[in-house]
Design a protein around this nucleic acid. Structure first.
Lengths: 132, 132
DNA sequence: TATAAGCTTAAAGTTAACTTTAAGGTCAAT
DNA sequence: ATTGACCTTAAAGTTAACTTTAAGCTTATA
């Protein structure tokens, strides 16, 4: 199949598929006589793996580092993957903590705003008074 | 004080302060005879408000929209601020949900990986079989 | 006096993951 | 024969929030 069909099957835009190829995330496909890219099932599976990894929060660069370098996303290094997954878990936990704190900060801020407190609430007064 | 002192007091880099000025987030300061920027306490307070808003998760553009347009971050619109805070709360809740789901997905994925399941786990088989 | 720290500007570079544009070749159908 | 859908490439544009660079003044210190 050509890039258009792969695009509609994968749910990605054709130019995104070319972009992945240019980044080395996707194997360079065969070409038809006129130069069109010709794909098979494996390409769809590769794209699907990329989309899966993205859902788990990995960047395209993360994916490159676990791939065998052949762009197939087939020969992935199990240990590297587990390592990446653990790192991502830690990142996610940190983000969850930050977001929860942020949420509480916003709630607190709203309360102060509704009580019509001084708008200078963000600045520690002693910081300001260090000045002349 | 000059930009260097404002930078060290605020914890921001001098070029970041100039950048904020260029974006209209910070009032244009007076200049000394030689052209240097001269700041007072208010500038520090403005920077502090910017940093506060950033901690709450707002973008520089968000801040512009609640400012009176004078770059002081003084005459903020209370209603607009409350509206922004509520919008941000909703965003944060959505992000928290996404991240929790992502975390569970990663945990599930790890389990499958450790059980040495087929690496094709990401792709629905019927999706692949639509192909020739 | 020299050198180093601090200030000025405008413009370009950074990162990620694409998207858009330009300029054109191919192919099926009308 | 021409319209329209689909394909090609390379390069530039997008967004956010800066950072870096270049080229050149000013001021304090040794």
């Amino acid at each position: 199949m050509r890039i258009g069909q792969l695009a509609s099957l994968s749910g990605l835009a054709a130019h995104t598929i070319r972009f992945y190829e240019s980044k080395g995330l996707l194997n360079k496909p065969k070409r038809s006589i006129n130069g069109y890219r010709i794909y098979d099932k494996d390409a769809l599976q590769s794209l699907s793996r990329i989309q899966c990894a993205q859902r788990l929060g990995f960047s395209l660069e993360d994916m490159l580092s676990v791939m065998a370098g052949d762009g197939t996303a087939q020969g992935m290094d199990h240990d590297k993957m587990l390592e990446q997954l653990d790192m991502r878990l830690i990142e996610v936990d940190i983000l969850l903590g930050q977001l929860s704190r942020q949420k509480q900060d916003i709630i607190d801020f709203k309360v102060r705003l509704q009580k019509n407190w001084d708008q200078g609430q963000c600045l520690q007064v002693d910081e300001i008074n260090q000045l002349n």
